[in-house]
């Protein structure tokens, strides 16, 4: 079975999903990430799904679970790079991915995690304030 690689960059774990995942691969990723968060002590996880041409309810649920589990382990998850067609389909499907923070690309995702830390604010239930780095 294939495995999705997990890279550590500074205080962040970066996962870039490049394959059409079998359900088992998605579940394996969920486990791997939890272990790596504990082993590395990072506070942020970025999951890049820009290569995924669909997100169905199973993958959606896996992403939500990853976000919840990481939160329990004191790491914030940001899902980045969702394609427009995927977003439109998810809306139609009725999947709103509650509890998942999203950003347009990896750069904006990293900025989002960075500003969180500076604030040191507790997690709120407000819709995501999106962050732009000032150039």
């Amino acid at each position: 079975m294939e495995r999705v690689p997990v890279l550590k960059i500074g205080d962040i774990l970066l996962v870039s999903i490049q394959i059409d995942m079998e359900d088992q691969v998605a579940l394996q990723l969920q486990e791997d990430l939890a272990e790596r968060i504990v082993a590395t002590g990072v506070h942020g996880v970025i999951i890049d799904i820009s290569a995924l041409d669909i997100v169905d309810s199973f993958v959606g649920r896996t992403l939500a679970t990853i976000a919840s589990v990481s939160r329990v382990l004191d790491a914030e998850t940001v899902v980045v790079g969702m394609r427009p067609a995927v977003a439109i389909t998810l809306v139609e499907l009725g999947l709103s991915l509650p509890g998942i923070r999203t950003a347009l690309n990896v750069e904006l995702g990293i900025a989002m995690l960075g500003s969180r830390e500076d604030d040191g604010e507790p997690e709120d239930d407000e819709p995501d304030p999106v962050v732009v780095t000032e150039s």
Binding site: D20, D23, D53, I54, D56, R83, A85
Partner: peptide, 29 residues
């Protein structure tokens, strides 16, 4: 993958391809 290939062959729009493949994924599961 099969549904995607056929969807491209019949020239569904990108959004419609995505919708169909997603539906097929749900139902196959």
């Amino acid at each position: 993958q099969l549904v995607r290939t056929v969807a491209v062959a019949v020239k569904l729009s990108l959004v419609d391809q995505t919708k169909l493949v997603t539906a097929a994924s749900e139902l196959a599961r």
